[in-house]
């Protein structure tokens, strides 16, 4: 719940910006053609706003992942966050090494999630360089 709330905003704001920044001439084409609502949304608005939406999603994912770990630390749900917290409290000689491993794992998983999102983005959206 907290995670969703925290990570919603980047997507929301970017979607709004994406929709607002559609090329005026493309909108005019839609007006001249008197496109139906459905065609306008799926052939003009969405494709044009998708890169923005995906940027928003990537930001959201990053924030969401961070908040998730933090929430685990505080709420003591089983997971990587709790593991780090426990090791920190434990204070034995090799807990620092364990924390390092966990932190690295958290980073790598975050990075992989981001790459996954990029892969999805290139698969779904149009990009001028393609």
């Amino acid at each position: 719940m907290t995670v969703t709330l925290c990570s919603l905003w980047p997507t929301l704001i970017n979607t709004a910006i994406g929709v607002a920044s559609i090329d005026r001439d493309l909108v005019n084409v839609g007006r001249v053609l008197q496109l139906s609502w459905y065609t306008k949304v799926f052939k003009v608005v969405l494709p044009s706003a998708l890169p923005y939406i995906f940027t928003g999603l990537r930001l959201s994912l990053g924030v969401g992942w961070m908040v998730l770990i933090a929430a685990e630390m505080l709420a003591q749900n089983p997971g990587l966050g709790k593991f780090v917290w426990d090791e920190f409290q434990n204070g034995s000689s090799d807990s620092l090494a364990r924390i390092m491993v966990a932190v690295l794992t958290i980073g790598i998983i975050g990075f992989l999630l981001d790459r996954l999102m990029v892969a999805l983005e290139t698969a779904v959206t149009h990009s001028p360089s393609r």
Binding site: D23, D25, L26, N28, V29, K43, V44, P47, S48, T125, H126, P128
Partner: peptide
């Protein structure tokens, strides 16, 4: 249109 205004994704 002067700027062609083609949908880049089509």
């Amino acid at each position: 249109f002067q700027s062609y205004a083609l949908m880049p994704w089509l």
